Amino acid sequence: MTLARYDADEHGSGCGRAGPVHLVTRTAPAWADAGQRISLALWTASGAGTGGGLHPHPRPNRRYRLDLHRHLWDAGRSEELRIRSGADRFDDSGTVGSRLAALAPPGCAVDRWADEAGILLHAHGSPAGAVLVRAGARRIIAELPPDGEDQSSLRVVERYPPGLLSALPVLPDAATWTLPDLELLRAGAITADQLHPLVAAALEPGYSRAETWCGASAAGQPRWVECRGERHRIGLADGVLTALDHDPAEIRREELLVALTGTPLPCLQAIDRAHRQPDCISGVRERLAHGDVAGALAVVDGLVGPDAALRSGALLDELEAAAQQRITYGLFQAGLSTAARRLPRPPRKPLRSHPRHAASF
């Protein structure tokens, strides 16, 4: 999933005959997405630019203003998400006008529209005015009153000159709808632990994720394993996860037994599970999905050691897939990947102007 299909449109200066140049921020398409990364590119009206040749939506769109919603992608502004999403309000009534609330379809953040319209109009250099809200198939024109009047609510404009409609600022899509994460939290469909740590901390003040280290009591401390009626330790030795209470000769004998399809010691079984399918693999997946590659590798290093060679299994598959996706993303950014170019659709058959009637015999 990407944060936005299109990108923020920064008004640039003219560039001779080529027309205005825009600085756009875009997320990669799903096939080239890696770690929730956002890139910068230049775009001109002629379609020339950097990084947009393979993108399914290369043109900037006024409905997706990532420059006005930095809290959705800038870690340094993530605390603003609570206010901008409306999570700080206990109900959705606010000061929403009855007419506006009746026109808006379900799922709209109508109680935030007045504040978001003010931010949008301020970016356009106007303290008040009309904005266009595209909520699904509906188009709503709402007006923010001047400073001397009540700016806590928008007024619906019943009639507006059609010729001036395209010139109206468009309320960004992120400001039109209620944040999906917030809806799921309010409905009890998910818990904060299932969200990105920064999002969870913004939506639920005081939240802190309980970190676990695959069953270890503390980072760097050995773990205990029931082995042949005794409690043995497995921990890091010389940068590798090792059975600390077995001498090297015994470990070599057990490895030969495993090569002959025998059952290894419980200590060695625990080490093998840590390499192939650890308890914390879901945490590694989350970090990779959130773009925290360094954090994911730190978890793996703390689990099997920084000098260990991972064995085949789910953990190695996840890391290899993440590395391959980063390569795909790099090729996409450089304009060198053509693997996911969309094939042209076959021409559609012309529709009949009237239904075909069956002949009777």
Rank of each mutant, 00 (worst) to 15 (best):
A4Y: 01
A4P: 01
D9K: 10
D9N: 02
E10C: 05
S13D: 15
C15Y: 06
P20T: 13
P20Y: 15
P29S: 09
Q36M: 05
R37T: 12
L40G: 03
A45S: 13
T50W: 02
G51E: 03
P58I: 13
P60Q: 09
N61V: 00
Y64N: 02
H71V: 00
T95S: 15
V96N: 01
L100P: 08
P105A: 09
G107R: 04
A109F: 07
D111W: 13
A130V: 15
V131Q: 09
L132S: 13
L132F: 04
V133S: 03
A142N: 06
D147V: 09
L168A: 06
L171I: 09
P172K: 04
A175W: 03
E183Y: 00
G188R: 01
A189H: 15
I190E: 02
E204D: 03
T212F: 15
G215I: 04
W224F: 09
V225P: 03
E226Y: 04
H232M: 12
T242N: 06
L244Q: 06
E250Q: 12
I251F: 10
T261Y: 04
P266Y: 05
C267Q: 08
V293W: 08
G302S: 13
D307P: 04
A308T: 10
A314T: 11
D317S: 07
E318Q: 14
E318G: 03
L319H: 06
A321G: 00
A323Q: 06
R348V: 12
R352G: 10
S353Q: 15
R356W: 15
H357V: 15
S360V: 10
F361M: 01
